[in-house]
Design a protein around this nucleic acid. Sequence first.
DNA 1: CACCTGGCTTTTGTCGGCCGAAGTCAGATG
DNA 2: CATCTGACTTCGGCCGACAAAAGCCAGGTG
Lengths: 178, 178
Amino acid sequence: MTQATEHAPDDDAVITRSGAFADRDAWTAQGWCSIERALEVMGTRSTMILLREVYYGANRYEDLARRTGLSEAVTAARLKQMVADGLLTRRPYREPGARTRSEYVLAPRGRQLFPLVVALMEWGGSLDGPRGGVELAHADCGGRLGAAVRCEQGHDVSLAETEARIVRREPHRGAAKE
Amino acid sequence: MTQATEHAPDDDAVITRSGAFADRDAWTAQGWCSIERALEVMGTRSTMILLREVYYGANRYEDLARRTGLSEAVTAARLKQMVADGLLTRRPYREPGARTRSEYVLAPRGRQLFPLVVALMEWGGSLDGPRGGVELAHADCGGRLGAAVRCEQGHDVSLAETEARIVRREPHRGAAKE
DNA sequence: CACCTGGCTTTTGTCGGCCGAAGTCAGATG
DNA sequence: CATCTGACTTCGGCCGACAAAAGCCAGGTG
């Protein structure tokens, strides 16, 4: 749960700003914040809840509408938008004696949201609710899942060790990783 | 980026449902989903953006309003709500020759959102935008940060190895872990 | 003690998310 | 060829998120 702690107690730690970002007020460009960009796509409740059901293996329009409890109008609109945003892919299928229909499966960009989904579930589950709920576990060992912050070298990283820096349109790896 | 891969290619993997949750339609209790619970608190854009600025070290009302670009009305309302939800704590301070004011610092529950913040930034940054932006790095080694899914035993866990199960109000660790 | 300033609160209006119900449409069935 | 069904679309209507602007108040300054 707690990150690697050989540094100071995290109690007051925040992200360190470096370079041009050190003076926070000098940096007010539009669209710099990847959180805002992410929220433009993932920002609505219906998107997250539909994604949840797809992660749980629901693929068809009717199942998705029923299990999420969303209205058909919103389900249809959101699914269309999620396909356009690259979260889901339409895949045709055909049951015997029925016409061809399409089901919705995770696209790479949707699958890359796995840590976010886990982080959200973990945090939501830690809120003191009297009710139980669903939690995720490692099938192999049964241990509960959680999201951890790591760097490319594999080190666990705490808030106190985190630094924010500005990048200038480096070619994004992972975007075309189809 | 990709999880441990000695299993099948993740291309069609979803979360495995076990126990009473195996029949997804039989389980329709309200409030079971920790994602929905998390979204009740974190579900608005303004909450995430304010949290971002606090993570970047902004603590005072005026700074928060200006740097987030939110209106003062929303800033005040949201800060109050975030304090009530346990994300932030008010802390009084006093500048020489000014009256006592209060600033907003991360509370434990807000600090526990670190993996979520990182996951959101990482994913948002991977969306092909022509513009650069801010990214996070490990201060010690300079490596980029990302969110990873792990179990309690420390194993990296892929989607294919993930299992969902129902828990019955086990005492939540981490809630009172101050 | 009148004034200023910073930290909110209130008011008004717009926009988008969501629901519920009704309408559309294509293709399989009888 | 009429009918049915599943997958949407369209049409009000409500409600919460947010912006802009004005008002309020406590405490420090002249």
